[in-house]
Nucleic acid binder design. Structure first.
Lengths: 241, 241
DNA sequence: CGCATCATTGAACAAAATCAAGCGAGGTGG
DNA sequence: CCACCTCGCTTGATTTTGTTCAATGATGCG
């Protein structure tokens, strides 16, 4: 199960805990690209786990624009917070055709009660979520468009590698330039021009969905990227690069 | 104890749980304005609780600028996450002379083990923290300087009211315009001009440290402020305004 | 083939940053 | 008690970064 691999990349689990996680009751649903999975204002009774695909959390603004505040890949639970925050203050949507597994809150609370180690791992997961938000705040507040884009591409590279979905050459980036803009607080046009700059500088080499990273060191430097905030455990970190 | 009032504004606690919280071992320390309380890279063994004063979390950037990512008022525990994330990925500093109570992680883990309701309240607190980060991401990414400042002033008003530190007229805002800029991703000069605009529009009426709010509805509208993301419980919410 | 979506380009414009001074209040030391 | 110094606020002029508007390519898919 993807969730287990993900949790193991950020916490230690006993075999017993892994078994309990594997035994969680799930209901699988698929979503087409751009479909909403949970909407702002709803009161979900399940947590959603990404099994396959690519997901974001976002808010719409009154002027019609939107802000994406996180991306999620297989193994992530983008609305884990709904266990303790009843009303969704944002929406979750699929960026590409996506498969989600839904776990009833009841079952989540039960496994947390039963296995404090699992509860700690989930809590820790939401704390890492928050750490990533903080880093995005830094990027949006103080980094140039160039650094911001570089930083995001670094983050996705590490996150994908930590669950085995990226290799040393690069990864599949299923985002349009408009979506990148919505995540980075930039216009589509500007994203386009800055991506060209990054290519010109030899830091990335995109061809369609595939993002090549010919100069990982350089890309990290350009984005002022420091892996600390992702709080990967030793093993997962050794796996990177 | 301030912490209890704060937790009660976001969760239900039994009398037993309140007693256990009140019995937590604490060590008090005071900090002068601008003093660091915890620094990026450290591995704290205590959680810090604001007892009196005003605190922020921030990161420094290589170009000398910095980004503030949250403000904390009496009752808040700005580094609760350190219970589960060993290395600080950011710093915590006092904005004004501040009194902090330090609680050993050990005691925190113990009370969580003993009282699942307390653990849930702490978890919920960190989730609300994350919800605020998300809202800041929206502001930094998609709101104008004018809306961003209005939004922050609304947020602080509600947070302060929920613990009884603001009244219907306004509140004490112990921040310089430079500090506001560091939080909002704006230059000091621009903060200054936009504050003047807000004053001219009759949305705020600042005189020294004191921030007057002559038109609360208007300020909320200007900042596109929706209280939902603060996840206050019914009672605390009834208290606002 | 034809439509839709995404990437790219150019030109004009706007928001906010930067640079450079001046102002004013509070605190300090002589 | 006052000169002086610092810090924070304010103002104007200029520059930068990024947006907006408007097309034009490119690509893929039914």
């Amino acid at each position: 199960m993807r969730l287990i691999r993900k949790l193991e990349s950020i916490a230690d689990l006993t075999p017993e805990e892994t078994r309990a996680l594997a035994a969680l009751p799930i209901r699988v649903r698929t979503f087409s690209a751009d479909a909403n999975i949970v909407r702002e204002g709803e009161r979900p009774e399940h947590c959603a786990l990404v099994t396959e695909g690519f997901v974001c959390r976002y808010k719409d603004l009154p002027d019609g624009s939107r802000q994406i505040m996180s991306f999620h890949i297989p193994g992530d639970m983008p609305d884990l917070q709904s266990m303790h925050l009843k009303v969704m203050d944002h929406s979750v949507a699929a960026m590409v055709p996506t498969r989600m597994a839904f776990i009833p809150h009841e079952a989540m609370h039960e496994i947390c009660r039963e296995y404090p180690g699992v509860a700690a791992a989930f809590w820790r997961d939401t704390l890492i979520d928050a750490a990533i938000f903080r880093e995005w705040i830094v990027g949006l507040g103080r980094r140039s468009a160039y650094g911001r884009i570089a930083h995001l591409l670094c983050e996705l590279n590490v996150k994908l590698q930590s669950v085995g979905l990226a290799d040393a050459e690069g990864y599949d980036l299923p985002l349009t330039q408009a979506e990148l803009g919505d995540a980075l607080g930039l216009s589509t046009v500007h994203v386009n021009r800055v991506l060209q700059e990054l290519r010109r500088d030899g830091l990335i080499a995109s061809q369609g969905r595939r993002l090549g990273i010919p100069n990982w060191e350089g890309l990290q430097a350009a984005g002022d990227f420091d892996i600390t905030y992702l709080h990967l455990d030793r093993e997962a970190r050794a796996f990177i690069h």
